[in-house]
Design a binder for these strands. Structure first.
Length: 857
RNA sequence: GCGGCUGUGGCGGAAUGGUAGACGCUGCGGACUUAAAAUCCGUUGACCUUAGGUCGUGGGGGUUCAAGUCCCCCCAGCCGCACCA
């Protein structure tokens, strides 16, 4: 009997071997195909969570598999180390953000190391190192010089809890994405990146991202929000003012019955500011919440300014001008014309304020006199009528015609409107990358810090005793001189949004020791783009859109990068866990409860516990497990196996004790099976026998099917199915009892394949067993096994026999069996005979290897 | 409201239009043991007393020799976007 598998000792041993041999360190090798496999870099919070374990396990399977398949695999790791939590720790505990961050990195690195990941740690990067953000500052200045970064005063999203500005992408339902505080609007001088310059390219690029999830592509498309339309000028009656409207449906112009301005439209106040009730109305608009629920319920209300605009196409028609709470200043021009017959919102508004409803498009099969609009706007296709020169045209023709008329008469222009806004990057925080510009005191000129003075480093000595940005209060840091004139100057005290760092880190990994430039063209040309990127879907628009902007922006500045940074993207599901509450409703940790006689109780006092919903692991609900405990108790391989085996990677994974124990049992079983079965294997390197028994051939078929199947499943990210097939093969191997030397050869072939197949999932165990069965090489350097195509198909197959589509029997036929014989065999079956009794066989359908269906009636 | 995804045993989940439930978890029975753990063997969709059947992939229609899979119409859950002109 073999000794029990000593997980800790064995796993540590193999990690040491990989480390000593630098198994996963790579360099550019033009003779080998490359594969850049990347996991989203973690924020160094101090401890890894199960979501990280899932992310890195998936990445590791791909990396190890690709390596075995002969690719030169780059699989790096680093730390997204700038950001708010470090400053909060500083505030709460008085530790310096840098110290806190580097300690966390050290701790988390230990934890990651214990997972046995095939990472090239020589390329490790921490974004808070000046050696990292130095290059970032250079990029900032390159953007500035190429007109991709600019500074302007603008209304910004101010998070009152984090005391900083947020980008539009970071505001969710009117609340800060991290703090949850209701965002305020403030006017500040801010730095922006001109992401809108690439709006069209970013949109078109989405088409090329064939290996991205459809969901993410849709989200980005919606976020960019392109719409084609026309901007039309309406002259205000009795004034020399005019108002511009954006419309995607200018063809409905003849049905226009009012105009609505945004409450904060400059003309709103000018046209109606003196009117009674104006101030109250504006106040009412502002008090409407921005939450989904508030918008859903918010009634469309308007305020009649009393002013009119001239209809641009109908000389004697004037439209009343309202201020509408539903009109957004941020979108289009902040003014819309209302065509109630063909827009539901306009119809609701028109009914409320008794405005005319004039239909101008009707379905073709209805006569004009029979077509009326009651409480539902008509938005379908049809022909125009009551529309002057557009009469008889369909929607598309009418659009063309009216746009041409506007353009000819100089009343309007075709424009493309985007929802996407430029990316505001200024943050009033200390723990970020300093924006490398100074402002000359004499004239306020904005002067870039010259390259040779980079990096602009953060000062070490800061205090958090007062609210606000410590950089701004620092006694000396911001006082400097103008690099051009030597006059006194003030440094920019805003730092960059931390999404800056994550927008290009995958390029720094390519060349992390390079001091003179962010990365060399040679490295970029060899490794880029990332072949497989893996991470959470929560970055669908933020990080993933910013990175796509970055490659384009860098390219424009002369850097050697492809347009698209990530050729393949995989978004993993969340890790969930059951929740537990005690009698008082207090949340309990999974480690505080146990199941006794089918009921959940508290371990310390046996009191009753309510087991609740299975939800995403969260600290507030305490339904978390600490990966370190798991790695410590069951080892890395068991944790990795469980994470891969239960759920498809794109779906949510429920973490269960039973699941991790099941994985652990399988690992022990494999170890036992091979240790106990060593004497049933032929010696290593025995030549292949010429003859095999039927049972050995069957075993070999299992083996070769698994080799082909597992590879295919890993490539398709069906890791759960790959694990299932590995288990099937192991079942086949463990029940095989060799009776002769050829059998022993077949069994060794199976074991060797098995070990190589599960190596990407359980690399420690795989190395151990590989060595136990006699190899002196290591698996990390061993190629993927090759399958023999001729062994995949069986000589005989068992197929079902249906009568009128219902299963009645199964028969075993030779692989080459023809229709006639199949028919004969099928009809001879007792069950088939019973089913066709008294009926006439009309037809027999035979699909070789699949089915026989007897049609009788 | 718009867009997307999902719906299969007690549970997680498998099924190029062709034997529904692979693989695993749980449960049940048994072996080993003084006993337990571990391990091993058997069994585990529902219903009909059995031979053998019947029913079963959220619901309803349809196409087909054959539908979990394709088409149409619903329902439920999750996610994203949203007064977007």
């Amino acid at each position: 009997m073999s000794e029990r598998y000593n997980i800790k000792e064995t796993e540590t041993k193999w990690r040491k071997v990989w480390e000593d041999r630098k198994s996963f360190e790579v360099s550019e090798d033009p003779d080998k195909p490359k594969s850049y496999v990347l996991a989203m870099l973690p924020y160094p919070s101090g401890r890894i969570h199960v979501g990280h374990v899932r992310n890195y396990t998936l990445t590791d399977v791909v990396a190890r598999y690709k390596k075995a398949k002969g690719f030169n695999v780059l699989n790096p790791m680093g730390w997204d180390a700038l950001g708010l939590p470090a400053e909060n720790a500083a505030l709460e505990r008085g530790v310096h953000p840098a110290d806190w961050t580097y300690e966390n990195i050290a701790q988390m690195k230990e934890q990651l190391l214990s997972m046995g990941l095939a990472i090239d740690w020589s390329r490790e990067v921490a974004t808070c190192d000046a050696s990292y953000y130095k290059h970032e500052q250079k990029m900032f200045l390159d953007f500035y010089k190429n007109d991709l970064a600019y500074r302007k005063e603008s209304v910004v999203n101010w998070d009152p809890v984090e005391n900083t500005v947020l980008a539009n992408e970071q505001v969710v339902d009117g609340k800060g994405w991290r703090s949850g505080a209701t965002v305020e609007r403030r006017k500040l001088h801010q730095w922006f990146f001109k992401i809108t310059e690439f709006a069209d390219e970013l949109l078109e690029g989405i088409e090329t991202l064939e290996r991205w999830p459809e969901k993410v592509r849709t989200m980005q498309t919606n976020w960019i929000g392109k719409s084609r339309g026309v901007r039309v000028r309406f002259d205000v009656v009795g004034s020399d003012q005019s108002i511009e409207c954006f419309s995607t449906r200018p063809d409905t112009m003849f049905g226009a019955s009012f105009m609505a301005l945004a409450p904060d439209h400059p003309l709103s106040k000018e046209l109606a500011g003196e009117k009674k009730g104006f101030d109250e109305f504006i106040k009412q608009c502002q008090s409407t919440g921005t939450s989904e629920a508030a918008i859903e319920k918010a009634e469309k209300i308007g305020f009649d300014t009393g002013a009119f605009v001239q209809h641009p196409l109908i000389p004697d028609k004037k439209l009343p001008v309202f201020i509408g709470n539903f009109v957004l200043m941020d979108y289009g021009t902040g003014a819309v014309f209302g065509c109630p017959a063909h827009d539901q919102r306009d119809l609701d508004f028109a009914r409320k304020y008794n405005l005319p409803v004039t239909p101008v498009i009707k379905p073709e099969n209805i006569a004009a006199e029979d077509f009326t609009i009651t409480d539902e706007a008509y938005t379908g296709p049809g022909k125009h009528y009551q529309s002057g020169f557009m009469n008889g045209m369909n929607v598309e023709e009418a659009k063309q015609a009216v746009i041409k008329k506007f353009e000819d008469e100089g009343k309007g222009v075709t424009i493309t409107n985007y929802r996407l806004r430029d990316w505001g990057v200024s943050r009033q925080r200390y723990w970020g990358c300093p924006i490398p510009v100074v402002y000359r005191e004499s004239d306020g000129a904005c002067i870039p810090v010259p390259d040779d003075q980079l990096p602009v480093e953060l000062p070490k000595d800061i205090d958090y005793d007062a609210p606000g940005n410590p950089l701004d209060r620092h006694p000396t840091w911001k006082y400097t001189t103008c690099p051009e004139t030597g006059e006194p100057a003030i440094r920019e005290t805003d730092t960059c949004d931390t999404f800056f760092e994550s927008s290009w880190y995958f390029l720094r990994y390519l060349d992390p020791k390079n001091e003179s430039e962010a990365f060399s063209s040679a490295a970029s040309n060899y490794w880029m783009p990332v072949d497989q990127y893996i991470g959470g879907v929560e970055h669908a628009v933020l990080h993933l859109l910013y990175s796509r902007f970055f490659t384009r922006a860098l390219k424009k500045c002369g850097y050697s990068v492809p347009d698209e940074p990530f050729a393949g993207l995989f978004t993993q599901g969340m890790v969930t866990h059951q929740t537990y509450q005690d009698a008082d409703g207090k949340w309990l940790l999974p480690t505080e409860v146990e199941q006794k006689d089918g009921k959940w109780v508290k371990i310390d006092d046996g009191s009753a516990v309510t087991a609740g919903a299975v939800t995403k692991m969260s600290k507030s609900k305490k339904n978390v497990v600490d990966p370190e405990d798991i790695l410590d108790t069951y080892g890395a391989d068991a944790a990795r196996l469980f994470i891969l085996s239960d759920s498809p990677p794109e779906r949510d994974l429920e973490w269960t004790e039973g699941g991790i124990e099941g994985a652990w049992r399988f690992i022990n079983k494999l170890h036992r099976m091979i240790n106990d079965g060593l004497d049933q294997l032929c010696p290593i390197d025995t030549p292949q026998p010429k003859e095999f028994s039927d049972s050995a051939m069957e075993l070999r078929r299992h083996t070769h099917q698994a080799i082909a199947g597992v590879a295919e499943k890993i490539e398709d990210f069906h890791m759960n199915k790959a694990v299932a097939q590995i288990r099937e093969l192991s079942n086949a191997l463990s029940s095989f009892k060799p009776a002769n030397d050829a059998d022993k050869w077949a069994l060794r072939e199976g074991y060797e394949a098995l070990i190589r197949l599960f190596n990407p999932m359980m690399p420690h165990l795989a190395e151990e067993l590989w060595s136990i069965i006699g190899h002196i090489t290591i698996l990390a350097d061993t190629s993927w096994p090759e399958h023999d195509e001729s062994l995949l198909a069986a000589d005989e197959v068992t197929i079902g026999v249906q009568v009128n589509g219902k299963m009645r029997a199964t028969i075993t036929l030779g692989a080459a069996c023809d229709q006639k014989e199949a028919e004969k065999t099928a009809l001879a079956q007792e069950g088939v005979q019973r089913a066709i009794e008294g009926k006439q066989v009309r037809k027999v359908i035979y699909v070789p290897g699949r089915i026989v269906n007897v049609v009788a009636g």
